[in-house]
Computed example of a mutant assay.
Amino acid sequence: MADHYVQGSVAFTCTAQEAALIEEAWQHAADLDNELAPGDPSAEFLTAFPPVELGNPFNGLLDIFDDPRFPRFCAEIQITRADPCRVSISGDSDFQPDAIAALIQRCCRQTLGEAPIGFTWSYGSSRPRPEDTGGGWCAIFADRIEFGETAEGLSKALQPAADPWSDHLVHAASDWKTEVANDETRLGYLDWIAARQSSVGAAP
């Protein structure tokens, strides 16, 4: 048997209002996870995490977790008291990238409107094997969240580079070269293909 870990961290600056909203959501999640009665939600919280069912003002927050029964970020949070604030979130055993990314996106609309926020995480094991290591990345935008695995990037990097001079199925590079030699075109190969397709209405 082996113990498996997900370790990650993210640090960013945001407005004091956004930091306060993150802190409120974090505390509500902790209270719910510990089966304690959460404090009254603020209007800003209800706007960021609109309830999905009547009668429970916190189910909009619970909805960002993979399992709403366990609203855990599995990380520690630190917030500086300034404006802008610096928020640091890190975990070394079961870091939850999805929930943390959703928390940041819901709470930091103004900041994300100016620039995206990104972070990475890694997989580990008490008995390392190649299949137990790796990691991933997350890019948070105001309108979307993108995830990727480091293994995917490595696989792509190891693939042979595509030959930019490989022939089009219909418009051969040799035909283009002939037209260039005869001064019949001054277009590059790809632009020449596009022009020929346009002139005959051909499909790419």
Results as ranks from 00 to 15, higher is better:
Ala157Pro: 02
Leu169Gly: 08
Asp94Val: 03
Ala202Thr: 07
Gly39Tyr: 03
Pro38Ile: 06
Thr111Ala: 09
Gly148Val: 05
Leu61Pro: 04
Glu44Val: 03
Ser199Gln: 13
Trp121Asp: 00
Trp137Gly: 11
Ser174Trp: 08
Phe119Leu: 01
Pro130Gly: 10
Leu32Asp: 06
Gly136Val: 03
Trp26Leu: 00
Gln197His: 09
Ala48Asn: 00
Ala157Gly: 03
Phe49Met: 07
Phe70Ala: 14
Glu24Phe: 01
His171Arg: 09
Asn182Leu: 15
Ile79Met: 07
Asp66Trp: 06
Val87Phe: 02
Trp176Met: 15
Ser88Met: 05
Ile104Leu: 03
Asp175Phe: 11
Ser9Glu: 09
Arg127Lys: 12
Asp92Cys: 12
Ser126Trp: 11
Cys138Ala: 07
Leu190Trp: 14
Cys14Gly: 03
Pro57Gly: 09
Pro51Phe: 07
Ala25Pro: 03
Phe49Ser: 04
Ile64Arg: 00
Ala99Arg: 01
Arg127Pro: 00
Leu190Pro: 06
Phe49Glu: 01
Gly8Met: 06
Arg72Trp: 15
Asp40Gly: 04
Lys156Ile: 11
Gln7Trp: 05
Gln159Ser: 13
Ala30Thr: 09
Thr47Phe: 01
Phe70Asn: 13
His171Ile: 12
Trp121Tyr: 13
Glu76Phe: 06
Thr13Ile: 02
Glu179Cys: 09
Ala102Arg: 14
Phe73Asp: 01
Ile117Pro: 00
Asp132Leu: 11
Ile89Asn: 02
Ile64Asp: 00
Asn34Gln: 07
Gln27Pro: 01
Phe70Arg: 15
Glu146Asn: 02
Tyr5Thr: 13
Thr120Lys: 04
Ser9Lys: 10
Leu36Thr: 12
Arg127Gln: 10
Arg144Gly: 02
Thr80Glu: 12
Arg106Phe: 03
Gly148Lys: 01
Gly201Glu: 12
Ser90Pro: 00
Gln105Pro: 05
Thr185Lys: 11
Ile193Met: 12
Pro116Tyr: 06
Ala20Trp: 02
Pro68Lys: 13
Ala16Pro: 01
Phe147Thr: 02
Gln78Phe: 15
Arg186Asp: 10
Ser166Phe: 09
Trp137Cys: 09
Val170Tyr: 10
Trp137Asp: 09
Asp191Gly: 03
Ile64Gln: 00
Ala11His: 05
Arg106Asn: 05
Asp175Pro: 05
Pro164Arg: 07
Ala102Val: 03
Ile140Gln: 02
Leu158Cys: 09
Arg109Lys: 13
Val87Ser: 00
Ala195Glu: 15
Thr150Ser: 14
Asp191Trp: 05
Trp176Phe: 14
Thr133Val: 14
Val200Asp: 13
Pro130Ser: 10
Arg186Gln: 09
Ala181Gln: 13
Gly55Tyr: 14
Ile64Glu: 02
Ile145Cys: 02
Pro51Trp: 08
Thr15Asp: 02
Asn34His: 08
Ala162Met: 12
Ala173Phe: 13
Gly91Ser: 06
Asp143Trp: 14
His171Trp: 15
Asp67Glu: 15
Pro84His: 12
Gln7Glu: 07
Asn34Tyr: 04
Ser126Arg: 12
Gln110Asp: 15
Leu154Ala: 13
Leu158Met: 14
Leu32Pro: 04
Ala75Cys: 03
Glu23Ser: 14
Ala37Ser: 04
Asp40Ile: 09
His168Tyr: 08
Phe147Asp: 00
Asp83Cys: 03
Val10Gln: 00
Ala30Glu: 11
Ser198Leu: 13
Cys107Met: 10
Trp26Gln: 00
Ile104Pro: 02
Trp26Ile: 07
Val6Ala: 07
Ala181Leu: 14
Ala29Cys: 05
